[in-house]
Design a protein around this nucleic acid. Sequence first.
RNA 1: GCCCGCGUGGUGGAAUGGUAGACACAGGGGACUUAAAAUCCCCAGGCCGGAAGGCCGUGCCGGUUCGAGUCCGGCCGCGGGUACCA
Length: 850
Amino acid sequence: MSRYSPADVEPKWQAAWAEAGTFAAERDESRQKYYVLEMFPYPSGRIHIGHTRNYTMGDVVARYKIAQGFNVLHPMGFDAFGLPAENAAMEQGVHPGTWTYQNIADMKAQLQPLGYTHDWSRSFATCDPEYYGQQQALFIDMLDQGLVYRKAAVVNWDPVDLTVLANEQVIDGKGWRSGAPVERKELTQWFFAISDFASDLLDAIDGLDSWPDKVKTMQRNWIGKSRGLKFTWELTEPAAGFDGIEVFTTRPDTLMGANFIGVSPDHPLARALEAGNAELATFNADCRRMGTSQEDLEKAEKVGFDTGLTVRHPLDPDWHLPVWVANFILMDYGTGAIFACPAHDQRDLDFSRKYGLPVVDTFFALDDATPVGDTAFVPPKSEPVRWVNHFAGLDVATGQEAIDTTIAFAEKNGWGEGVTQFRLRDWGISRQRFWGCPIPVVHCDTCGIVAEKKENLPVRLPDDATFDRPGNPLDWHPTWRNTTCPKCGGPALRETDTMDTFVDSSWYFARFTAPRAETPTVMEDAAYWMNVDQYIGGIEHAILHLLYSRFFARAMHICGHLPADATEPFDALFTQGMVVHETYSTPGADGRPVWHLPGNVVRGDDGAALSDGTPVEVGPLIKMSKSKKNVVDPDDIIWTYGADTARWFVLSDSPPERDVEWTASGAEAAFKHLARVYRVAAEIADAPEQGSGDEDLLRAMHKAIHDVTMGIESFGFNAAIAKLYAFANTLAKSKAGRETRAEAMRVMAQLMAPMTPHLSEEIWSMLGGKGLIATAPWPKSDPAYLVEDTVTLPIQVNGKRRSELKVAKDLDKDAIEALVLEDQAVQKALAGGAPKKLIVVPGRIVNVVV
RNA sequence: GCCCGCGUGGUGGAAUGGUAGACACAGGGGACUUAAAAUCCCCAGGCCGGAAGGCCGUGCCGGUUCGAGUCCGGCCGCGGGUACCA
């Protein structure tokens, strides 16, 4: 009897699938389609175990759907533009394209042995000119439709390297290479008008029935619809050309508790006042000397500056409030100005205490007004609160009633307006970088900004750019910028901004439906294949990528590239957990950490070291990422045990949606199990024809069909595998006749085939299965085998299990009650008395309350 | 800071509000073998007990319920996102 040898078996079946063209997807209107897609990888150079986990899940779905008879589209590509290629270019002197395409070749070579059903004939990388040229065509269409515009926006500016930095490149407020404190700088940039769709993007979330609730909640909160009041505080003395300050508040009901007006350091008034106020100019400059990220802004220590200006309260002209500039007020949200209510907002209270601003006592209370200490009372929106000192005549009301009443009051009296505000901002897509899709416009002295003609697309990146200094190589390329104006034919300069790489990944799913077309999509293909039936990817994309894709599907519909029913691109979404791993670092020469691969680190119980003994700093469990080098390569497992073991192991290891800490142990055990299944299959061929217990085996088989099918349907892959272990144990021990055992083994091979396709093909052919198991129809469970005649009911006394009762499945309640009362443990607990209550849940449990 | 998750034996984890710890890994014991490998069998949450059995137990505190890992409220810890990492 031969041993299970993946090195022989796996290439054989991969060749068989290729020869049969099993996984090439063709549009066929007579068949029902199924489109399964995993989020495509960034070509960092190596596949890591997180990718393996992601694609194996998708492959299980794809193979399961193929077995169910669907025409399955399962493509794969590369999200190939981005920063790491430029960093590599600077460090290694290699063109980003060379580096990227080499990585793609390496990763394809790693993916190929895993036996996935990916249709590589449809593959592309987003840095292919054929892809980004179509993206440029889309951009021009969107420009024509008024979905693109230019405005000023701030970026992180490295004053030493004279370059724009990504948030990731800002570490503790300093540039990652230069170490210089970053500044905020304003540039004119390109924007997509995603906020025009805020309302639709929000409302349509309700229709995403097969998306995880957590993702829908995050998207709702991100879009952030809120109703509030917009009104102006009139300055007591006009200043710097301003008569008043417009604010937006979601809590107008706290108006009577206002104690100061705060404006953002970037507010036009704050900027205008800088001219005559050197101290304020310094304060504002300090505020701007930090990263642009939301996290940095919100976590920074709250500081303020008193402008000396005052405003009048809208309800009492004699009530004057000071105007402060404060760093925690965001110019991007509302009007960039707020009024503070320290009694009912903790941040306002902290700020007021810090600067000694007088605090208006609480006027919402469960009782009378009480002085405010160090804790603000936030009036709940949904529960009634008693009001004190309120102007609108309300006594007891919920927060929401109070808000609505106040808005109505302001509108009636003409000093304010109820408005709906979204947190969602327009999408700035300009990047001052080389390795991205060039924005296809030119700047003409005569005509201004003009879109490139579509016949001139793609606007290609130059092959001869240099990367010997920071910044955007397109800016100092000797000739690339020079072009002619598409409108007047005169000399003009190309736009050197490239697009955010999120643009590339916002429509690739649509491109897969016609990947070689001369237009972004082909309507017939898009209409047939869209939507993606099952999308699978990391939870870290819950907001940005998924929201941008939803926006793009709408924009593409408006531009005539997608049908109306594809404006929600992903019918079902599954968010897998991330594979996390410790990080390992040693201090570098410049004080920044140098990261080390887990494979180069020897881990002890109380620390870790490099192989030469250098101690290593052990960091927390975080998602595997190239930049922190905490990645584990699946190749080792594949070389040692084969693809099926790797696939089986990443699925059995943990529930798919949960983060998983990678440990190497367990892969061997997975291999042992697969080898055992193979051995049992081989033994069955020599088994005696007659046996005993055939009925029991069939019962176990049908239960396995039922359980594994349910497991796959619900993404409970680890649970499905546990059922397969149990079925394997039963089958290995079964003394049933050869034919029954062979049937059971063939079914097991089918149930395992989505996870271990090569082994399953081998067993299938060994035991006389017809054709390829990959296309054999999925087995069906016979309900007659699933029903049990008797059932064991646990008996609880006061909720604690004390005994059990074996009864016929359909025994009625009264009969069960009678039997329960006869039970020894129950009698002991009752001590001659009667139970207070007897709860019988038929087929489930009995609880006796004494 | 804000939004969203997660927390169960030594480990990964299972459990439509109904017997907590399925199925595995590591571990212990045994069989086979000259031996090893491979394979097979048995044990195993903690505490007390020879056993029968009892008590405790799903991050912490409280609540709802006949019954809570599961639902609700409040904490603690960890992770993801935070608009230029992808």
